[in-house]
Computed example of a mutant assay.
Amino acid sequence: MTNRIALVLGLLIVGAIVVDYVYYGTEHGVFLAKKLADLIEWLAFWR
């Protein structure tokens, strides 16, 4: 992965988070962060 691709992907992710915050507030972000933490814990268990 080149630096340019990494930068574009990072900007897309940050942009998506900003759009979600502006239109829907912080509740969705907190929910997704909790679910992501659960997924990471579940994957670590099966590793």
Rank of each mutant, 00 (worst) to 15 (best):
D20E: 10
M1Q: 13
Y23T: 06
V14G: 08
V8N: 00
D20K: 03
W46G: 03
D38E: 10
T2E: 02
A16T: 09
F45M: 04
K34L: 10
A6W: 14
Y23F: 10
A6R: 13
V22A: 11
V18F: 14
E27Q: 15
H28P: 02
M1R: 13
I5R: 07
V14Q: 05
A37D: 15
L7W: 07
H28Q: 14
L11G: 06
G25N: 11
I40C: 10
G15N: 03
L9Q: 09
K34N: 11
V14N: 03
I5N: 00
A6E: 10
L9C: 10
E41D: 13
Y21G: 06
I40W: 03
M1P: 02
I13F: 11
V18C: 12
G10S: 09
E41T: 04
F45Q: 02
L9A: 07
V19I: 11
E27N: 13
A37H: 05
L11I: 13
V19K: 01
T26V: 15
I40M: 14
L43E: 06
R47A: 13
A33M: 07
A33R: 08
D20Q: 02
L43N: 04
A6V: 11
G15S: 08
V22M: 08
A16I: 05
W42F: 11
I13D: 05
T26G: 09
L36P: 00
L9P: 00
L12D: 00
A33L: 13
L43A: 08
I17R: 09
V14D: 02
G29H: 07
L39V: 08
Y23V: 01
G25Y: 05
V30K: 12
L12V: 06
Y21V: 09
K34W: 04
D38V: 03
V19P: 00
N3A: 03
V18M: 08
L12K: 07
E41C: 00
I17L: 08
L9R: 15
E41F: 06
L12M: 07
I40Q: 14
F45E: 05
R47F: 12
A44L: 12
A16M: 11
Y23D: 07
V22L: 14
Y24T: 13
K35S: 06
L32A: 09
A16W: 06
